[in-house]
Design a protein around this nucleic acid. Structure first.
Lengths: 151, 151
DNA sequence: ATTAGTGCAAAAACTTTGCACGAGC
DNA sequence: GCTCGTGCAAAGTTTTTGCACTAAT
């Protein structure tokens, strides 16, 4: 549904509408959170048993470069991706356990005051990290207090 | 000078005051920016020609876990580190070319409003990314307009 | 038919780990 | 002397790349 809009946008830019690309996109659209390449290939294997991780990476890179998805990194050494929000500009609460995101309807940029002389602003990042309602109890149950302190 | 304070703090916590650890710390203290393990080993090689990258990583991890330095990632796939600011809480303008940082004396947290139900806030990240006064002209000169757009 | 996309294998890049030796306490 | 720190070698992880084949246009 929504996926089609993105796919035709990609087609307009010279990319082809492959099933795998479409399904990666759809998976990202259906899950409102940051997702790793590893999770994606796992999900794709059901439908495409021989699909390779390289294809996932290549498609993620393409879509990131086209501004369709966003890449970020949290506690681990792996990148995670989510659909770039097309709605009005906002930021996210992010669960570092499951990648789940919730909207922060506040942007700090208007309040930062004057930019340093000569500094060219390209981008900004405002993320509030923690555990979501589902993951918070689990971490306590498993005695991950040290983990929490560390992050 | 300042380095000694950190080193004795480390000693208090059971770590040893090795020259290499001290010099990594001093390098970070002298450079007000995000620095990679690669840059650090390069810098250290002058004084310690046989020093290994593993030592750099191990010391960075130790000091990060002790809260002395902060780790972050930007455009590349490598972690960069800087001294954790001990002064009053603030955020940074960060040059994605050289890692240079400048203080943003504004924290968005008081303005975010109510946290989603059950969400446990552990940390927040507010970074304004771009090119500093020194790097901005270079990027233009080299026709890196596409790069700019991409980041 | 042309060219982008894919799987496979391999490599690259970054980071961590096991082990034995050396240095700090 | 005991233990932590270090270098070396090796391995682990994540991500990228070359190449030949397949599939979308």
């Amino acid at each position: 549904m929504h996926t089609d809009v993105y796919m035709s946008e990609l087609k307009d830019r010279g990319y082809r509408a492959t099933g795998k690309r479409r399904d990666i996109l759809e998976y990202l659209l259906q899950h409102n959170r940051y997702i790793s390449a590893r999770e994606l290939i796992e999900a794709m294997k059901e439908k495409y048993p021989t699909m390779s991780l390289e294809t996932v990476y290549r498609n993620l890179r393409t879509m990131r470069d086209e501004g369709i998805i966003e890449e970020s990194r949290f506690e681990d050494n792996e990148s995670k991706y989510r659909i770039a929000c097309q709605t009005s500009h906002h930021h996210h609460y992010i669960c570092i356990a499951c990648g789940n995101t919730m909207v922060i309807d506040h942007c700090p940029m208007p309040s930062v005051g004057s930019v340093p002389k000569g500094f060219v602003v390209l981008q900004h990042r405002f993320e509030v990290l923690g555990y979501c309602e589902t993951c918070a109890p689990k971490t306590k149950a498993e005695g991950m207090v040290d983990e929490i302190a560390k992050v």
